[in-house]
Amino acid sequence: MFNLIMRWFEWDQQEGSLPLERVFEYTEEPLIAQFRVDGAPALDRLLRLPCLFMNEGVGDEVCRVGQVTRARVVNREVRFDYTLDPDVPPLRNQTIYAGRLALDMPHDFEFSRNHWAVKDVDLYRFLLRNVRPRRQRPTVFRIEEHEEIEPALVSVMMPFDAGFTPIYEAIQQAAANVGLRSRRADDIWENPAIIQDVVSLIDRARVVVCDCTGRNPNVFYEAGIAHTLGREVILVTQAEQDIPFDLRHLRYIRYLNNGEGRVALTAALQGRLQTILGH
């Protein structure tokens, strides 16, 4: 069995409330009898069940699995505290909707109404059967189980060469002009292996800038990681032929490595960052 709590706003406050009369909506009568005492919800019994926390909708809305940890009735409302299970990744309502019959949720209207239901279904068995297993994890470096993107971070991938310092400064200026901060791997030393610092920097970034000048193999490798992780990647180069063949269908910024060229690079990169940020 599991609790289903549906509401219209996000599950990010660790506490919530519902009208008392909405408890046990879309719940079979035998279950209501099992979890009701003297006409009121037996909250202590309900707290023993896992919970599916959903936003209203049947599409890309995010839902989570967790537990109601405390509940009480106050002024005809059920107020409750809850925790989300960090070992269960966020789900999409469309996944739940596709399996609605198996979850005893046959009524479409249930997906658009705030309520607390009890379902006589093994929630975790449903998840094991219907949610894709996690992919094999990398062995060369570590990726955190859950993303923690820093919204203001731009990661810069370029050769470790003093000649690229003025270019990095031009990129830094473009980021600063739109309220972002930029870092590259040689700015940090958090792990014994430099590859882990590089990957962590990419994984935390909102945007990754890769300078392909000179066809540096490390930069190409890092660009591939950034694309795989789903980051916004901006390619820059001093020479068109330095863009890998497999990436030439993507837009890139070409610049000259002189004072005027670096100013132009800052302006072009600033415009691209503004587009990504929606400014």
Score class of each variant (00 low, 15 high):
103 L>K: 13
100 R>H: 12
255 Y>R: 04
268 A>H: 11
40 A>F: 11
176 A>S: 15
137 R>L: 12
58 V>T: 15
25 E>D: 14
238 Q>G: 15
270 Q>I: 09
258 N>G: 06
191 N>H: 15
74 V>M: 03
91 L>H: 08
130 N>V: 10
89 P>F: 12
140 V>A: 11
18 L>D: 02
146 H>I: 00
125 R>W: 01
179 G>Y: 07
193 A>I: 10
265 L>N: 10
48 R>T: 07
248 R>K: 13
163 G>T: 14
85 D>Y: 05
113 R>I: 14
243 I>D: 04
50 P>W: 09
132 R>D: 07
58 V>E: 14
184 R>E: 03
244 P>R: 08
228 T>N: 09
62 V>S: 04
80 F>A: 02
4 L>E: 09
78 V>I: 12
63 C>H: 06
7 R>S: 04
165 T>N: 11
182 S>F: 05
174 A>S: 06
79 R>A: 05
150 E>Y: 07
126 F>Y: 15
162 A>P: 03
116 W>G: 14
223 A>R: 03
82 Y>I: 11
40 A>L: 11
208 V>S: 05
95 T>K: 05
157 M>V: 11
104 D>I: 01
266 T>A: 14
192 P>Q: 11
219 V>A: 07
236 V>P: 06
235 L>F: 15
52 L>D: 00
172 Q>H: 08
39 G>P: 05
263 V>W: 02
124 Y>W: 13
132 R>A: 13
241 Q>P: 03
178 V>R: 02
112 S>P: 02
104 D>T: 10
4 L>Y: 07
135 R>V: 00
80 F>L: 06
228 T>H: 03
211 D>K: 09
60 D>W: 07
62 V>N: 08
181 R>V: 10
1 M>G: 06
203 D>E: 15
244 P>T: 01
88 V>C: 11
183 R>G: 04
199 V>P: 12
160 F>G: 10
278 G>H: 11
177 N>S: 14
31 L>Y: 08
1 M>R: 11
220 F>C: 14
60 D>M: 07
266 T>Y: 02
240 E>K: 12
60 D>K: 09
121 V>Q: 11
122 D>L: 05
128 L>P: 00
27 T>E: 09
106 P>R: 11
165 T>M: 10
100 R>V: 04
153 L>E: 02
220 F>Y: 10
188 I>K: 09
65 V>K: 07
40 A>P: 00
118 V>P: 07
270 Q>M: 12
245 F>R: 01
61 E>S: 04
5 I>D: 01
217 P>K: 12
122 D>G: 07
262 R>T: 13
200 S>C: 01
119 K>S: 13
196 Q>N: 13
29 E>D: 05
67 Q>M: 08
48 R>F: 00
141 F>W: 10
197 D>R: 03
93 N>A: 13
208 V>L: 01
236 V>W: 07
224 G>I: 03
109 F>N: 05
110 E>Y: 04
120 D>I: 00
209 V>M: 08
62 V>T: 14
33 A>W: 01
26 Y>G: 01
